[in-house]
Structures are given as C-alpha cells and as structure tokens.
Design a protein around this nucleic acid. Structure first.
Lengths: 266, 266
DNA sequence: ATCTGTGAATGCGTTCACAGCG
DNA sequence: CGCTGTGAACGCATTCACAGAT
C-alpha cells in the first residue's frame, strides 16, 4: 500500500478534520465506480449486500465504510444510488472537478489522457508537457504537448489541482520540484523512485513493477513444484499461426484503458 | 489497497508455507529497486537506516520486513547489497524470470512493454494481443501484435506465467476467462472492473482513477476553505529544476515510464 | 421483517526498545 | 560500541453481532 507519511520533525500539527481511514477512502472510489454502473442500468436502490458483492468486498465492511460519511441509507430498505453517489463524490472532493496537468507525453502519458475513467470522474487534463522536441507540438487527445520548460509558468496560469508525473525516473525529481515550486500540492507519480517533497505536499506513487512482483510472489508460492520455466532465450515469437477459437475478444463501445490504437496527430 | 482475499466457501485449505505479510511483500519489491540502484553505484554494504531512508520507510519496519526472509545481515555492520538483492529476488520468485503475455496493445499496453522496469526485473513480454484489425500486425518494442483470437492457443504454447490485461473494461472479463481457461493463474488487470475468477487464480487490479481520487480527497481535506492555489512562482528550487529538466531523459541510460516518443513501427 | 448503523471483539501491521552478536 | 534481529506494546482495520429505525 502506498505510504506517504513521514512527519520527520514531529507531526505537522494539523488535526484531522474528517478522519476517514485511508483504506476506506480507497474503497470509496471503488464504490463510486460501481454506483455509476448501477445508475446507468437504471437501478435506484441497492442494499449493502448487493453493493458489496459488486465491489468485491464484504457487506459489513461496506456499511462501516459508509458510516464514516454519516447516515446514507434507509434501514430496512437500502441506499439511494443517486444520493449515495453524490455524497461520496462530495466527500472525495470530486464535486467541483479537478484540473490536471500531465508531465510526460510518452506512451504512458498518452494512455492516461485517453483513459476514459478520468474525464468521466471529473478529472480534466488541462495541460500536457514533455521535454522531447519530437513530441512537443504534437496533439494528443485534443491537447497540444507543450515544452516542459514552460511548466512552472503554465501551472501558475492554469491553476491545476493535481499533477501527474509520467516521465523517466531520472527526470522525475526535477519535474516534481518544479511543480512544488509552482505551488502544486497533489502529485501522482508513475516514476519508480522516491520523490522528496516538503511537508504539506501529497505524493502518491504507482509502481507498475511492484504489482508484477507481488504476483510473482504469489505465483511462486502457489506453485513451488514447477520450476519448469527455464529461461531458454525466449526469442521473438514471430508466429503468425492464428488458430481457430471464436469467442473472447469483443470490441464494444466504451474505452477505458484504451485498447484503441491512438491517434497522435501532428 | 488491492484486495484479493475472498475465500467464499471456506479457506482453500492450503496452509501458507511461507507466510510473509502482503504489506511486506509489496515493500520488498521497493527495496529491490533501491538495492539495484545502490549496486549500480558500487555500494557493497548498507545499513538498515540507509536503505530505509532510500526506500522511504522507517528502519524498524525495514528490519522487520527483512527478518521474514531469515537472517540477511551482519550485526554491527549492515547488509551485503548483492546478497540481499538476490535473496529478495529469490523470495519473490523472480530468479528464474517470468514470461508475460500482454492483452491490449493500446497506449497503455504499449507503455507497459516499453516500461524499462519490466525487462530489468526479469519480466519478458513474450506476446502481445489485440482485437483491433488496425493494430494487429504492428510491431511494438520488437513484438508483433497478434490477433486476440489466437490468445488461448498462444498461451498453451508460450506458457507464460503472468498475463497483463490492458483492454477496455467491457472486454476484460472475456479476456480473463480465456486466460484462465488456458491455465493461467496470475493476472494483472488495468480494467476498472471486478473480474470473476475461479479459486486458485490470483488477480491484481490497478485502477488508475482510484489513486487520483485518493489524491482528490487529501487535497480537499487539506484546503477546505478555498480552492486557492496560493503563492505564485515562489522561486526557490525553480532554477535547479529548470536546468535539470533540460538535460533530463536523454543523458542517463535507464528509461522507466517511457516519456520517449514512442515508436509504433508498422 | 428487513436492512442499516455501530459498539465491541478480533486480527494484522507498525513501532518500540532492547537483547544479542560481531 | 554499532547494528541487526525480535518479542512486546501499540494502533489501525476488519469482522462480528446486535441494537435501532422503518
């Protein structure tokens, strides 16, 4: 789980005004997604049990989580989907939306702007930046990639509330410093390195490799008697042998993590 | 963070042969990254304190974490970087490497194959799949994107140990079923939806929007009165940041989250 | 009768502080 | 001495079980 509490020289004094456990906050986001789906399906009322199942948690936990937001349901009945949804959005601070700047217009950066879940949940990317001349000026998802040199100025103008760092690790700290220097206080970083920031700045880090390694651990623990995977220079798989097998792989409408080949129009 | 424990009808019987807390496993991956950096810098011995600082945790926690792997250090001295590194790799099951299939060759998929942290940590992508005709056949990072229709067959041939799902959410469950049907037991999904799998299959889910929403919560909690992005360009580190940004990315070797303009050669 | 909301109990992970080895 | 390894104390999160509302 993502740590981010260090309080080096004593706690930062600030008393928590609303103390909702971090673990709960993380799940609220999940509930929100499920509620959105339910709303789309025209469901008006859900019980804790139904919601819990859909979200993949147990119902007691869900009720406890929701209880931190005050009373939200009706006993004997359940929760009003629309009402609960906007309550959670409110608590998470999503109601008035967020302006996001994205630094790093590589594949990851482009995947993020295209990520449907962003727009839909109130995050609007208002600026994209990169340091590579061949990327600067390109248009990605309706935004022109700007030179990172102008980042600080842009931040003071655009007044984003959140920044996303999707640059190589050796550039991450510099970008971070620049953002912090411009007054930004919420940063999501995909660079696999620690970022040093002053107190009061919140950094969340997502390390894709960590997830893979956790899978690796479970895999090797669950299947110890099969170390049969000897690395034999698993060369290019130039196989072109399509084989039969119909089903699977549909291509409906919605596009979340973008499987669609995407459009980097110059 | 990521839950994945549900044990519906009673625990799966299997007694944990090595019970290392999940939280510890997650951090081991981080330590590994730091150790790699130290090794590159020629450091041979580290104290728990040094390692802890570099990894962003407190030293007691680090020592406790490492104690789960048995004795790894020398009292009064510290830890042998190389030795500890390979010990952790061993415990995480990374020693003999992993073959990975990646389903979904959109921006996210492409970002993942390009992600330097993968190769470097023993994950080799052996196959990429997509369902869009305009993507199939393209070459990405040295791999030809294949039709997802051939996924099941490919899995039985390639015998990957891990699959990564980077497709839109409405296709995710079908892909997942296909993978599971082919015998895969470790799946990392980026689709923002629950995946139903039989017992014995491990699914980890990364929802990028959840991280953003947690940031949003913290942001709104720390600045409840006004969305006022106070101080303008409060110089300070700004200069250093600027000059560092100029050289970024190009100089060093490593390229982690790929900010590099990205090359989808047809 | 039904389903929410919540104190109380349990379990897990973190932190402390020191014993023990080099 | 210095630093690791670890039992014990602590605090946070999950689960239980029931009181309370409709």
């Amino acid at each position: 789980m993502t740590e981010q509490h260090e309080a080096p020289g004593g706690v930062s004094g600030r008393a928590l005004q609303k103390d909702i456990p971090q673990a709960t906050v993380a799940r609220l986001a999940t509930y929100l997604r499920v509620l959105a789906t339910l709303a789309d399906d025209g469901v008006a009322i859900v019980s804790s049990e139904e919601l819990a199942v859909a979200a993949g948690v147990n119902s007691a936990k869900l009720r406890k989580d929701l209880s931190f937001l005050g009373p939200n349901g009706v006993r004997g009945v359940g929760y009003d989907v629309a009402k609960l949804r906007s309550r959670i959005e409110d608590v998470l601070g999503l109601s008035q939306g967020h302006r996001v700047v994205l630094v790093g217009a590589g594949n990851l950066g482009r995947a993020l702007v295209g990520y449907g879940g962003f727009q839909r949940r109130g995050f609007t990317v208002v600026g994209m930046f990169d340091s590579h001349p061949e990327v600067i000026g390109l248009q990605v998802a309706g935004l022109v990639v700007r030179d990172v040199v102008g980042l600080a100025d842009a931040v003071t103008v655009l007044k984003p509330t959140i920044a996303v760092i999707a640059v190589p690790d050796d550039a991450a700290q510099a970008v971070c410093d620049c953002l912090v220097g411009s007054g930004l206080q919420s940063i999501l970083s995909f660079a696999p390195c620690e970022l040093t920031v002053p107190d009061g700045v919140e950094v969340r880090r997502v390390d894709l490799a960590v997830e893979m390694q956790m899978l690796s651990f479970d895999a090797s623990r669950n299947a110890p008697p099969l170390p049969e995977v000897s690395r034999a220079a698993s060369g290019r798989i130039a196989h072109r042998a399509y084989s039969a097998l119909k089903h699977s792989a549909t291509s409906h409408s919605a596009t979340e993590p973008s499987s669609k080949g995407s459009v980097v129009t110059p």
